[in-house]
Simulated scan of single mutants.
Amino acid sequence: MGILTRFTDIMKSNINALLDKCEDPAKMIDQTLRDLREDLAEVKKETANIIADAKSADRQVKECEEEIAKYTTAAQNALKAGNEDDARTLIAKKQQYESNLASYKKTQELTHANADKMRQMHDKLVNDIETLEARRDAIKATVASAKAQEHINKIVSGGDKAKSSMESFERYEKKAEKMLDAATAEAELNAHTSAASNLADKYTSNGNDASVDDELAAMKAKLGL
């Protein structure tokens, strides 16, 4: 009757309060159901044994009372027959059964009290199991929704980071475009400066060519050519 030692704890347990306090109701409800079903199986087994004990005690009480009634009637008949010694013997036997009857009744009372407790535990456990089974799907659906929302929150948070990264990339892209425009402008300026320089060289070189021609003509005249 080990389960009887847990009677008070089981009867005081509040399934709803337990679920409200636990951090992960989905896992807790499955574990609690397993524990309750194990307790219920033990209670059923113990209850069957205690009810058997109670019935046995009932039979002992009934049989003892029948023996007392039998010896009482026999003693009375012995006295009516004028056999006092036999009546005395029968009364002594009756008193032995009366002494045993007190013990049998105590056992009967105890076994019936224990049987009542076991029935109370049985009904409590059955009710708790039904309550949990009724709430299990709803609780698991709520937990699943919560986890889904957490996942979405993470995605949204990650989207903010992606948005921030994209904005940074756009800033870098604009900066690169500006650098390219500056380099292009500088190249155009360099090209313009080079053209002007080439033009100046052209006219400068023409002067040098005239000098060469003059010297060439003088050399030809001297040689009589």
Rank of each mutant, 00 (worst) to 15 (best):
K154M: 13
D160M: 14
D116S: 05
R59E: 15
M118C: 08
G82R: 01
S194N: 03
L132T: 06
A162V: 11
I152G: 04
A115G: 03
K105E: 12
S211G: 07
K27T: 04
K45Y: 13
A217N: 02
Q95N: 12
K140I: 04
K44H: 01
K175I: 12
I50R: 04
S13A: 11
S165K: 15
D39C: 05
D181M: 06
K147M: 04
D24E: 00
E186P: 00
H151D: 14
S145E: 14
E65N: 09
D35T: 11
L90H: 02
H112F: 09
A54T: 12
E167R: 03
S205K: 15
K220M: 15
R37Q: 05
N83Y: 01
M179S: 07
I129L: 14
E186V: 00
H192F: 02
A187S: 13
Y71W: 05
D86N: 13
A200G: 06
A57M: 09
E67W: 14
I139W: 06
D128I: 06
L225V: 08
A195T: 00
Q76Y: 07
E150I: 04
S99Y: 04
T32S: 03
E150K: 09
E186F: 11
K220W: 12
K124T: 00
D160E: 15
M179H: 07
L36Y: 14
L110I: 11
G158A: 14
Y104K: 03
I152S: 06
Q149D: 14
A221W: 04
E173S: 07
L189P: 00
H192T: 03
K174R: 15
T73W: 10
E188M: 01
K106G: 09
D24S: 02
L223Y: 11
N198D: 05
Q120E: 12
L36D: 10
K154C: 13
E67H: 09
N198Q: 13
M1P: 11
L18K: 02
E23P: 02
L223G: 01
A74R: 09
D181W: 05
M11A: 14
D35H: 11
D86I: 08
A54C: 11
F7L: 06
A210Y: 13
I68Q: 05
A218Q: 14
D213P: 00
D209G: 07
M1T: 14
T131L: 13
A17G: 05
E23I: 08
A75C: 02
L33S: 09
N114A: 04
T107R: 13
A87Y: 02
L40G: 03
S211K: 10
A148R: 02
H122S: 06
N114E: 07
A148M: 06
A196P: 07
T107P: 04
E170H: 11
L180M: 10
D116W: 08
I91K: 15
L110V: 10
R37W: 01
L18G: 00
S103R: 08
Q60S: 13
D24N: 08
